[in-house]
Design a protein around this nucleic acid. Structure first.
Length: 368
DNA sequence: GAGACGTGGGC
DNA sequence: TGCCCAAGTCT
């Protein structure tokens, strides 16, 4: 590290921390910087939980889930002793459900370890905690001198220093660049300040450079090339897959079953469905053979849903039975229990579509 | 290294 | 509509 850059970094650190002291976002899991300056630290459990929820997920979305989660499971003990299904139900709609499985297993692990580890190296041994999250928890919860590198930090640093390296291959370069900022002076606040800057000022599109404490030092801003950074590999187009689902409602509720614990929507509930294939005209009769017999299936059209790596078009059929109709291998989910169930957004959409078709036909009016 | 893994919002 | 984006991790 050249001496001039080291000196520059010290100055920039102070500018950013000063900005953070007056501009820090007020977040449910966060300790305000003023309290941190008085020697307080946030609850490591809260920091860990928030960081897991924030992986690839926006702050606005996480807030609601975080509050519900921390109220239901105020401590790591509460989480560790809870049934997995309760955890999945609270996670429903947040996505990346493997995170919830990891979180539950990690709670037991953390208990066994006597608490949340303080060192990045140890933190990374825990399920669901990678290089970023380990550094974030160590810095924010324990004021360890590390600089977590997430998408915000990559964007901010690439613009500041005009780093042309292409992500994600260049992740090691960014990690190295970021550690040059490491300091024992307020490392937790510095980490959060960097992320706040990326989230509120140095945004992907139309950054608010005029409000940025680093504007006069920013290479991209000087050259009006903010939009070029960070350099990223272009995304591949995602394929479309097709399937069929059946929404069956009787007095006990809608017919559902639990998906396998591994893979897509792992451990979550689903309505009877075909597998999802590449053929748009695949025969829906290839679906579950144990659907209720002797009911009239109404065609509910289709609904579209987009996953990370493929788009999905599901044809929906729905039917109502005025008397209980149990099906082997399935359970009934009461219609008043939908909101609190482990239903992924996709399945929620499908059920809503199925119900609206029945309602439109005035079928089972008071029940559907 | 590349692909799997959700969802909602912005433009 | 479609594409990008959001505090990544695991295989």
């Amino acid at each position: 590290m050249a001496h001039y850059k080291s000196k520059k970094i010290t100055q920039l650190r102070e500018q950013l921390l000063a900005w953070y002291d007056r501009s820090a976002r007020d977040l449910p899991w966060r300790l305000p910087p003023a309290q941190g300056l008085k020697g307080q630290r946030p609850d490591p459990y809260a920091v860990w939980l928030s960081e897991i929820m924030l992986q690839q997920t926006g702050v606005a979305t996480v807030k609601t889930y975080y509050v519900a989660f921390i109220n239901r499971f105020p401590t790591v003990q509460d989480l560790a002793k809870a049934p997995l299904d309760d955890v999945l139900a609270l996670w429903a709609g947040l996505g990346y459900y493997r995170r919830a499985h990891h979180l539950h297993a990690a709670a037991k692990d953390i208990l066994a370890r006597g608490g949340v580890p303080t060192q990045p190296q140890t933190l990374q041994k825990i399920q669901g905690i990678g290089p970023y999250t380990a550094a974030a928890i160590a810095a924010i919860a324990f004021d360890q001198p590390v600089v977590p590198v997430d998408g915000n930090v990559e964007r901010v640093l690439s613009r500041l220093w005009l780093i042309e390296a292409i992500l994600p291959a260049a992740k090691p370069i960014f990690w190295h660049e970021a550690q040059a900022w490491m300091s024992t002076h307020r490392p937790g606040d510095f980490a959060q300040a960097l992320m706040d800057l990326g989230a509120t000022i140095c945004t992907p599109r139309t950054p608010a450079c005029n409000l940025c404490p680093w504007q006069s030092s920013c290479g991209a801003s000087k050259q009006s090339r903010q939009g070029e950074f960070p350099k990223k590999q272009v995304n591949k187009k995602k394929p479309t897959r097709y399937g069929t689902s059946w929404v069956h409602i009787d007095p006990d509720g809608v017919l559902v079953t639990k998906r396998a614990h591994s893979g897509l929507l792992g451990g979550m509930l689903e309505v009877p469905s075909t597998s999802w294939g590449d053929d748009p005209s695949s025969d829906p009769c290839l679906g579950p053979v144990d659907l209720p017999k002797g009911v009239t299936w109404l065609d509910g059209g289709y609904i579209d849903h987009v996953f990370t790596h493929f788009a999905l078009r599901v044809r929906v059929f729905s039917a109502y039975s005025p008397k209980s109709l149990p099906v082997v291998g399935y359970q009934r989910l009461g219609l008043d229990a939908l909101a609190g169930a482990a239903l992924p957004s996709l399945m929620h959409k499908i059920i809503v579509a199925g119900r609206s078709i029945l309602a439109a036909q005035s079928i089972g009016l008071d029940q559907v």
